[in-house]
Simulated assay, not measured.
Amino acid sequence: MSFEDKSPMITNNGDSQSSIAGKVLENLNALIVFAKVAETRSFTDAARMLGLTASGVSKAITRLEQELGVRLMHRTTRSVSLTNDGSSFFERCSHILSEIEEAEAALNQTQSAPRGRIRVQMPVGFGRRVIVPALPGFIERYPDVVIDGELSDRIVDLGYEGVDVAVFIGVPADARLIARKLCNLRFVTCASPDYFRVHGEPQTPDDLERFRCLAYVLPQTGRYRDWHFEKNGRTFAKTVSGPLNLNNTESLLEAAISGAGIAMISTFIAADAIRAGKLKVTLRDYATVGPQVSVIYLPNRNLSARVRVFVDFLARLVPPNPPWDQILEPECNR
């Protein structure tokens, strides 16, 4: 009999016989332990997050399996994975725990200010330039909230890694995630004024083949990021690279400022250098709208007070027309 087949047995007088539902309700802590192991795929990581020992977590899972009469997990010395019954059980547990968390969050909202720890992951450039400078204002307003921030350009698995909120560029692959748009990236093609003085400027994107260009290396794939352009309603992309290609936008900015060549850089990264005259924009008429930037989080964290106020904070942080995009406007309009 599969896990799904083991539904509660109710007698005519309304008494519940020894059912899975009754046993589960008697030990909610076991559900919490199981869900954390299922998310992290690790007894050690789950134990650390729950403040327990690894052996205590292992024993709790074993007792739960004995009570349910099904095997929930495959265990080896190196990994933990869910059985088919374990996957079904985890899906149902997630809904149950989500409801409990949301009910607790709703109760806490009426009784106290947001509190607790938020794990946040954000891209290095956007995090450093846009989010981190504004965080002191957030923690001053919400002194009982602790932010553990990770700045990296990797793609995180929110449920598996226990991350509450991530700032994501592009379209999330996981359709279950809730995504709230912050803005769209805009890019500028630019180089130092000295570079253009010596080598001239491209008049069209096709001219870039005659110039020394600096490409951004995508950390996930090692490929070069395409340069996107738009003209007369037509959007097109070019694969551009040169003798120097980097996987960090701040370093790409410094290389362009030093005269190493032409780069395509996000406006929020390049704006200060352009205003200071360290970089000059070219191919301005070919600029196009880039990928969307969103704050993403799991559905079962939607009503957590601390996550809600942090998401609202990020949404307010980026205005509809960000100041860094104003460098794309004609100089007479700035």
Rank of each mutant, 00 (worst) to 15 (best):
S2M: 11
M9G: 08
I20L: 15
L28Y: 11
N29E: 14
A30D: 12
L31W: 03
F34K: 00
V37S: 06
V37M: 12
R41E: 13
S42W: 07
D45I: 13
R48D: 14
L50W: 03
S55T: 12
V57G: 04
V57A: 06
S58Y: 04
S58V: 01
A60Y: 00
T62Y: 07
E67C: 01
M73F: 05
R75C: 07
T77N: 14
V80D: 02
S81K: 11
S81F: 09
N84H: 14
N84C: 10
G86F: 04
R92C: 08
I96L: 13
S98F: 04
E99I: 14
E99K: 11
E102V: 07
E102T: 15
A105Q: 05
A106H: 11
A106T: 12
Q109V: 06
T110D: 12
T110K: 11
Q111I: 12
P114M: 06
R117I: 12
R119G: 07
V120Q: 02
Q121R: 08
Q121F: 08
F126R: 02
G127C: 06
R128D: 08
I131F: 11
P133D: 10
A134G: 08
P136I: 07
F138E: 10
E140H: 14
Y142H: 15
P143C: 10
D144E: 15
V145W: 09
E150P: 00
S152N: 15
D153M: 04
R154I: 12
R154E: 13
R154C: 09
I155C: 02
D157M: 09
G159K: 12
G162S: 06
V165T: 06
G170D: 09
G170F: 05
G170V: 07
A175W: 06
R176S: 14
N184S: 14
F187Q: 03
T189N: 11
D194N: 11
R197W: 07
H199L: 03
G200V: 09
P205W: 05
D206V: 06
R212H: 14
C213P: 01
Y216L: 13
P219S: 02
F229I: 04
E230F: 02
N232S: 15
G233Y: 09
R234T: 12
T235D: 10
V240F: 02
P243N: 14
P243G: 14
L244V: 14
L244N: 08
S251D: 05
L253W: 00
A255P: 00
I262W: 03
I265G: 00
I265R: 02
I265H: 01
T267L: 00
T267K: 00
A271F: 10
A271K: 03
A271V: 03
K280C: 06
V281G: 04
V281F: 02
L283Y: 06
R284V: 06
R284G: 02
T288H: 08
P291H: 10
V293I: 15
S294Y: 03
Y297S: 08
Y297V: 07
Y297L: 13
P299Y: 08
N302G: 04
L303V: 08
V307G: 03
F310D: 02
F310Q: 02
R316Y: 09
R316A: 15
L317I: 07
L317P: 05
V318L: 09
W324Y: 15
Q326I: 04
P330K: 10
E331W: 10
